[in-house]
Design a protein around this nucleic acid. Structure first.
Lengths: 240, 240
DNA sequence: TTATTTCACTTGTATTTACAAGTAAATAGT
DNA sequence: ACTATTTACTTGTAAATACAAGTGAAATAA
């Protein structure tokens, strides 16, 4: 058996990616049984501990549930990475219905802090890429978000098109930056003048606010985002 | 080496529990290095894969971060399981400052649905234990929560004292029910008359509402809870 | 002294092997 | 026909072993 060397991506990660894409892509639907661990072994040419590591991750992230003696059952695809548990707005709603309007195009700015989060010296010195977007679900404005990303080693980033694209997908595909997790604050506020205009709501309308510091696979590289949500029609949904 | 048999609790789970309690208990503080995997092996009389499985879980739940070539560093204890990522209110704030007033003592009720979540036939037939609590952080009312638990196989549950106790700790210790995860909805609302009274706030005050369906280690056993939060002074904080 | 290499240590990945335990269908017995 | 048992699957746990790869300090060479 030849050693994996080509890409230095671990086998269990590869298997995880494949199975995950098969679940999100609809190859396996909700309620379907995954092939047994031994079958997966022969298919992917790895041993059971490797397969199990991939399944462990899928289990943790809520894609599957496993039952001793029965098998691994697919739980669900899009809900597994809702807005509260992992990535951004796109995965929470489902890309089909989500359209994005750029309010402030990506531009380099200086910053001293990111919302309520303090910054390191290195972050302050490098400046940030600043974006403001209004996001509409089925034509209705639901999210208004401000994103700040440290301006380090992201070639051609400001010239990219962010309309109807997931920021996290862009970072993943073009810069090999993956979201690992992060911390967030949640609070309920009343809409200010700006929000009233964007969301087209009246005086005293309640708005849900999220401040997030998002950790990535690149050490020391954090993404900061502030999201305002009108939860009148679309509540925030997430698994944990 | 003698086989573990006594309790049928897996070794990696035991090690996880021990390390977790040492982190939450302050034996290891934030920034401390955990003993190396090999050291933990000799201490707990298990092999590295077993230790690594325990560390995997601690990593997933945010208690530690691991760095190849360096070691495992303790990240933090209470924030790791904030209100949004895992368990209940208690772990989000820190038990020290949290006091609880029971508004409606645990009582058996009939139910047809749990907030926005539909119920199975079995759940409807068994009825539920209903609790309403007001929770104060440093003397200020911050959370008002309604909890509904299926009334099945929970001896002496309604007669237990829930003042200043974590519901999840009680389930864990006395009934061996552990929280696995769940789904939740978040929205911002304005305080109604009831909330205005409980939180001592004025007209039109924004309130953060959570509806949660919490999955447990007992198959088919879900806990339903609705939480209202006044985020004026204490925002919801969580890691993911 | 300074720069480089070596080495001991850490976690990361992967295989192989073995048995335990839950599930469900096929089978044998009554 | 019905019940109990066997059997063949499934996932769960655990050990022993090996090597890869990152880290940092000590030893070494310039």
């Amino acid at each position: 058996m030849l050693k994996q060397q080509e890409t230095s991506i671990p086998q269990h990660r590869k298997v995880y990616e494949i199975l995950r894409s098969h679940i999100t892509g609809g190859v396996f639907g909700e309620g379907d049984f995954l092939p047994s661990e031994n079958e997966l072994c022969t298919v992917h040419h790895v041993t059971r501990p490797t397969i199990r590591k991939a399944l462990d991750r899928l289990t943790n992230e809520g894609y599957i549930v496993r039952h001793q003696g029965k098998g691994s059952i697919v739980k669900g695809s899009p809900k597994g990475v809702g807005i509260l548990s992992m990535t951004g707005t796109t995965s929470a709603i489902g890309q089909d219905n989500l359209t994005t309007t750029i309010i402030i195009k990506p531009e380099i700015r200086t910053w001293n802090q990111a919302f309520t989060f303090p910054l390191t010296k290195a972050e302050i010195e490098s400046g940030c890429v600043y974006i403001e977007r209004l996001r509409l679900v089925n034509g209705k404005p639901v999210f208004y978000d401000i994103t700040m990303i440290p301006n380090v080693n992201l070639p051609r980033f400001t010239s990219r098109n962010f309309e109807n694209k997931s920021l996290f997908d862009i970072l993943r595909k073009h810069y090999h930056i993956e979201v690992r997790g992060g911390e967030q604050q949640l609070l309920a506020i009343v809409a200010d003048e700006k929000m009233k205009g964007y969301f087209n709501v009246g005086q005293g309308h309640p708005i849900l606010q999220l401040n997030r510091k998002i950790e990535t696979s690149r050490a020391g590289f954090y993404i900061y985002s502030q999201v305002f949500c009108n939860t009148d029609e679309y509540v925030l949904y997430g698994t944990f």
